[in-house]
Amino acid sequence: MYLPKWLHQFGAPKYFYDLSLCISRWAGIICIICFICGLYGGLVLAPADYQQGDSFRIMYIHVPSAWMSLFVYMVMAIAGGIGLIWRIKLAEIVARSSAPIGASFTFLALVTGSIWGKPMWGTWWVWDARLTSELILLFLYLGYIALQSAFEDRRVAARAGAILALVGIVNIPIIHYSVEWWSTLHQGPTITKLDKPSIHLSMLIPLLFMVFAFKTFYISTLLIRVRSEILEYECNTSWVKQLLGINNGIK
């Protein structure tokens, strides 16, 4: 099985480094714009909910964090798998750099959900399937991060981490479908179900802005992390020396 040639070029560190400078800047700008629109829409423009009043506004950070916690894990596991099979350094770097961001999103989803649950459900925490499986996701991220620092050799660490990430991928559908498979305290999906989303348009639009803001936030901060790692990996190559302005004089 071979990867297409353009993908190999994409995976070439120097090419990716230059590209990422541009992408992370633009993703950052879009992210800030989306955050401003989403926060203004969600906190000011959107009306209070008919049952939950203003407390439903926690949704605007809870839902995007929860979605991103799953999305980032998928990226981490797939990149890890690609790194494992084709030994592409860049895929290993992407997987490793995603872990702290994904762990942050998972943490946010759990904490904001807990703060939301106290006034609405009447409890900070319950051991229902959705909450428990999301907590397991946080432990998977933390296990992955611990594994990365446990090995001296980065490439060995990347392989070990990829296997952990691939094993943990089984948790992702469980988190997603937990509210449908079992009777949980957590309510069912609002937007991702197949028929019409059960949220009023005036409340949905700010949510979509926030979702987009979180996604671009991930892209932008991921690429900054990836660049540092590329520099460390590739520090002996001529393009890095040239980039850092150290080549003058040596020849």
Binding site: G53, I58, T112, W116, P119
Partner: peptide, 16 residues
């Protein structure tokens, strides 16, 4: 005050 939920809403936005 967020309709009485200010402490919950702002603390979660703050942590975020």
């Amino acid at each position: 005050s967020m309709g009485g939920y200010g402490a919950y809403v702002w603390s979660s936005y703050g942590i975020c």
